[in-house]
């Protein structure tokens, strides 16, 4: 299955023009040039994980004290911080590829205009995903600076985690984009928000998944945020090892599969 998806991505990627993908990204920079509205949208996405880190990591952490995870004992805030970093990457990418992307497809008819130019559907998908990753990276970059400044991460850990958060952004960006092309209307966003919140609460973010019943644990381990959290946590507070490659692999496959779905659906929707 995943091989087929990867082959399809490769097939569609044939003849992709980096310049045109860049132009799709540049459109979003153009939106930033066009006035303050989009700046506020971008800024708002930064605060959510910061507030969670303060309220739960630091606030609840003061009552919890230390926690044992992966055979190591650490402060609760140090346990939660990498998870919030992964969440920041997820939220940043999802915000761009769900609400904004859906609007451009359905209501703004923005892409309809783009497809009258040499740009192809797969190039739109790649450009929008690239932009989602850039947006997510701005959040995670700022968040990493915050973590280093407050002593919750070492400088080396932060530098290692940054590319990992880019991968997390691409994976969730592609997932959100594929979901957007399948959505019927705004009512589906409530479902998505519920799903996103469930992931946020139970993906080993606030408590180690080892504490869950076996069945729940298996479910959580099949879901993407778990792998994102484990990857980022492993790189910042440990433990490292080959398991990290597995988590990264999961995210790569997710990104490729979802990108293929998104490009195909976009073509179906707009090139009838």
């Amino acid at each position: 299955m995943t091989m087929m998806a990867a082959a399809r991505v490769a097939g569609r990627a044939a003849g992709v023009s980096p310049g045109r993908v860049g132009a799709v990204i540049a459109r979003n920079v153009g939106a930033l040039r066009s006035g303050p509205a989009y700046w506020w949208v971008l800024l708002s996405g930064f605060f959510e994980p910061v507030l969670y880190l303060l309220s739960i990591g630091v606030g609840v952490g003061a009552m919890v004290g230390t926690i044992e995870a992966g055979g190591r004992v650490m402060s609760y805030a140090a346990f939660v911080a990498p998870a919030m970093l992964a969440v920041a990457a997820m939220s940043g990418a999802l915000a761009e590829t769900t609400f904004n992307f859906f609007f451009k497809v359905k209501y703004g008819r923005t892409f309809e205009a783009v497809l009258a130019t040499p740009v192809r559907p797969v190039e739109i998908a790649l450009g929008e995903l690239g932009w989602a990753m850039i947006r997510g990276s701005v959040y995670t970059g700022a968040f990493i600076v915050l973590l280093v400044a407050t002593g919750l991460s070492s400088v080396a850990g932060g530098l290692l985690a940054f590319p990992a958060t880019m991968l997390v952004g691409v994976a969730f960006g592609a997932l959100g984009m594929a979901a957007s092309t399948l959505m019927r209307g705004w009512q589906d966003f409530d479902l998505m928000a519920a799903g996103q919140f469930a992931l946020f609460l139970f993906s080993g973010t606030f408590s180690p998944v080892g504490d869950y019943p076996a069945a729940v644990r298996a479910l959580v381990e099949a879901l993407p945020l778990y792998h994102a959290v484990e990857l980022v946590r492993g790189l910042t507070v440990g433990p490292g090892g080959w398991a990290l490659a597995g988590h990264a692999g999961y995210l790569v496959v997710l990104a490729a599969g979802c990108l293929a779905v998104a490009a195909r659906r976009l073509e179906r929707l707009l090139c009838r």
Partner: peptide
């Protein structure tokens, strides 16, 4: 039906569009 980009200024609509042509 007009499908101008509502997020962009008048000028930026044209500049952005020109970029799609390389």
């Amino acid at each position: 039906l007009d499908n101008l980009d509502p997020d962009l200024t008048v000028e930026e609509n044209l500049i952005t569009y020109a970029r799609y042509f390389g």
